[in-house]
């Protein structure tokens, strides 16, 4: 029963992340909301799978999958946002500060 609670929590986090993809105004903010919420949601679903199976072969596989998903998605988000800045996309209209512009000249 505890596993179902974790899986449902993960689905709710995924839902919030996808709402963020639709509503937020520019690329950087969309990437922020989506990466954080969807990564934590999928980690929560995998942890629910570990609780459901207990410690046998399926549980061990799900336990291996969690750190790979974590490192993979964070490093992918970092590479994607750096590429977006170098591609020439401007920051949104509401932004207040830009220190990176002097650094890469």
């Amino acid at each position: 029963m505890l596993s179902l609670i974790f899986i449902t929590t993960g689905i709710i986090f995924n839902l919030l992340g996808c709402i963020g993809i639709i509503r937020l105004p520019d690329t950087y903010n969309r990437l922020q909301a989506a990466t954080k919420c969807v990564t934590l949601g999928c980690c929560s679903i995998l942890f629910g799978v570990v609780l459901h199976f207990g410690l046998n072969d399926a549980g061990a596989k799900a336990l291996v999958a969690i750190p790979i998903l974590f490192f993979g998605s964070t490093v992918a988000a970092h590479a994607l946002i750096r590429g977006t800045y170098h591609f020439g996309i401007k920051l949104g209209k509401k932004s207040v500060k830009d220190d990176y512009k002097e650094a890469i000249k």
Partner: peptide, 20 residues
């Protein structure tokens, strides 16, 4: 972090103030 982002997404006025 997630609760914070969820608050900003669901709020009708979207209180964001981005910067680097």
């Amino acid at each position: 972090a997630n609760i914070d982002v969820a608050y900003r997404v669901l709020h009708p006025a979207m209180p964001i103030r981005p910067g680097i």
